[in-house]
């Protein structure tokens, strides 16, 4: 029964080895997609190159469908998957901070690791910033602990919250992603790099 770790197929020490292997796969595909350079990541927010959106949603849809079908066919116990607790207001505030930080810094924590490994100096500075940010958060934690733990909604997923069957939400997300991909292709044609160069030549 999946997930294997939760059903004691192996111990936590072996799990660390799997963590390393899975991390290699993660880093490999992030780099392959071009997430090792801030220019490509930031281009997302000027509609020049929507790779970030495309990769991210393809990944979410792939994993979501995989999990959904594995559980439908009884291979996986979905209730054993770890779900982070929703603290809606801090998460909205944190999300906005991350978004602003993303466009200022050019990376997110995961992609900055990949960029560091391929020799991007700005990513090294970004990573120093991340450590500083965490340090500041931790030092201020006694002051913001209450806010950070506010609006606790428990471990809640969208099917449970909206009271819609899991399969329907999966279907809706797939539809949304497909629509998004079409939009992304259109936007790239309209705002993408090549078009800009042609305009500049005129």
């Amino acid at each position: 029964m999946m997930p294997y770790f939760k059903f004691d197929y192996f111990g936590s020490d072996t799990g660390l080895f799997f963590a390393f292997i899975i991390g290699i796969g993660f880093g490999w595909f992030l780099e392959r997609a071009g997430f090792g350079t801030a220019k490509k990541l930031a281009a997302q927010f000027y509609f020049k190159d929507l790779t970030v959106f495309k990769v991210m949603f393809t990944a979410i849809v792939t994993a979501m469908l995989g999990i959904y079908f594995l559980s439908v066919f009884g291979f996986m116990d979905i209730s054993e998957l770890s779900v982070t607790t929703t603290y809606i207001v801090p998460q909205i505030v944190g999300g906005l901070m991350l978004g602003v930080g993303f466009v200022i810094g050019g990376y997110c924590p995961g992609t900055s690791v990949v960029a560091c490994s391929t020799g991007k100096i700005d990513a090294v500075f970004f990573l120093i910033g991340v450590f500083l940010g965490i340090f500041i958060f931790a030092e201020l934690y006694p002051l913001i602990e209450n806010f950070s733990n506010s609006t606790n909604m428990g471990k809640v997923t969208m099917p449970a919250f909206f009271n819609i069957p899991y399969g329907i939400i999966v279907f809706l997300v797939v539809l949304m992603a497909l629509g998004g991909f079409a939009g992304a292709e259109w936007a790239e044609k309209k705002f993408g790099y090549k078009k800009v160069e042609v305009i500049n030549e005129d």
């Binding site: 944190g94 993303f102 991340v130 940010g133």
Partner: peptide, 18 residues
């Protein structure tokens, strides 16, 4: 880059993940 990283680090802890 440093400044963006700081915002990210702080925000990620508030949001419990990046």
């Amino acid at each position: 880059a440093v400044f963006g990283g700081m915002l990210m680090g702080f925000g990620a802890k508030l949001a419990r993940g990046c």
